[in-house]
Design a protein around this nucleic acid. Sequence first.
DNA 1: ATGTAC
Length: 483
Amino acid sequence: MCPITYAGAVQLDEFRWMLPKEGGMRVPGVLFADRPLLEKMLSDRTPQQVRNAAHLPGILEASIAMPDAHWGYGLPVGGVVATDPEEGVISPGAVGYDIGCGVRLLRSRLTRAELAPLVERLADALFRNVPCGVGSSGAVRVAPRELERVLRDGAGWAVQRGFGTAGDLEHCEEGGVLEGADPDAVSQAAHQRGRGQLGTLGSGNHFLEVQEVEQVYDERAAAALGIARGEVTVMIHCGSRGLGHQVCTDHVRDVSRKLAGWGIVLPDRQLACAPLASPEAQAYVGAMRAAANFAWANRQCIADGVRRAFSETLGRGPADLGLSLVYDVAHNIAKFEHHETSAGRVRCLVHRKGATRAFPAGHPDVPAAYRAVGQPVLVPGDMGRYSYVLIGSQGAMRYAFGSTCHGAGRQMSRTQAVRDTRGRDLVQELRELGVVVRYEGRDTLREETSEAYKDVADVVRVVQGADLARPVARLKPFLVVKG
DNA sequence: ATGTAC
C-alpha cells in the first residue's frame, strides 16, 4: 500500500501530515490540516520553517504546525516545539515578538437586545477607556519601581491595585502569573517602552469585541463555563506591547552572538537559541516570564476598562453587570510541562507560538470549576464572522504537547488586503453586517478585513477532527474596537 | 506583533 503524499508531506490520517526527516532534521515535522488548509500552508514557507525548527538541539518527537499556521519569524505562527530540559534549547524566535500575547473572555448576563439602543454609546465608552493603536499609552499610571512588581506578579498586581477581583485570577492560565520572572533580565529600554502601555490594546490583529453567543455545541461544557446562547460576551486579544517586543529583540541579539561558540548550526538564524543550561537561556527565560506577566497584567487592566465602560453606559454598578472572567490564555509563550512521549513521561519546555494550551478534562492545571470538562481554549476568527470557545481534548496530549490552534490565520498579506479593499466603505459594510466599529489608524480596517483571514470554522473542524480540542460555542461580534 | 528603519 502506497501512502498518499502531497508536496513531500505524507498523509498520516485525515487531519495529519508528516514531513519526513531529511538532512539535519532531528525529528520529523507534523502538520495538522485537511487538504485545503494544507494547500494554503504550502503556498508560503510554513513547511520549510517547520523543517528548520526540527534542527533545534534537543527537540522532542516532532516539529508541529497547527491548521492556522502561516509564515513567521523563524518558526511559523501556529508552531509548537518541545525541547529536552537537559539537552535542549530555548529559542526566543520560537516564542515570538509578542511575548504573552493571548485572549481573555468575559461573559455577562446581558442580551444583545438589551444593549442594542446603547451600542453607539458603549462603543464610544470602550474606545475612551481602552486606548488602542501603535504607541498607545496612558491608561494606567505606574511608577518605575512599581513596574518591577507588575513583571513579577502579573494579573495579581492589577487585582491588588483594584483592577478586578481575586476571582478573576482563578480563571487565568497559571493564575495570571508565571513564577520565576526576572525583571533584571528585562532591559531598561524595554522597561521604558512598557511603562506607559498597561491597559492599552495596541494594533495589528489585536482587538476588543462585544459578542453574542450565537450557537452552543456542548451544553454541559457551556454550562460549566457559565455561557449560554443569546448572552453577551467580551473578547480581548492583546499582548505585552512594546515591552515584550523589546525583550525579544534584546535576547535574539544576545543568543545570536553566542551560537557559534555553542557549536549550534541552524538553517535559519531567526531560530537562534541558547542551551537551557546556559546563563543566556536563564536570562531569556526570566525576561520572557516577566513579559508574559506584563501581558497578563495588561489584559487584567483592559478588562477593568471594559467593566468601567459598561458600567458608565448602563448606569449600573460593576457588580450588577455579571461581567465575570471565563478564561484568559496565552498563545505566545514557552513553559516547562510534563508530557508523555515515546521515551515515557518527561519534563520538557513547550514553545507555543500562535498555539494555545489545550489541557483535557481531569488535568490538574485546569481550574477546578472546569476540570470535569477541560481547559477553555479561546479562538478568535475575524471581525465580520465569528470566534470560537473550545475545550482541550485528549488528542492534544497525545499528538501536540497539550496544544491546539489559536485563530483563523491570515490568508492575505496586509498590503494585499489594503489594495483589494481600496474604495470600499468598510465601516458601512460592517454596519450592514450588524457590527459597529471604532478604530485607530488609517488602514487598520482594510488590513484586518474578513477576507484577509481564513474561515476559522475550517480551522476548528481540523482541531476537532484531530481530537486536539472540541467546540463549545460560537460567538458573533456586534461591536469591535481595533487599533 | 512593533516608537512598522539603527
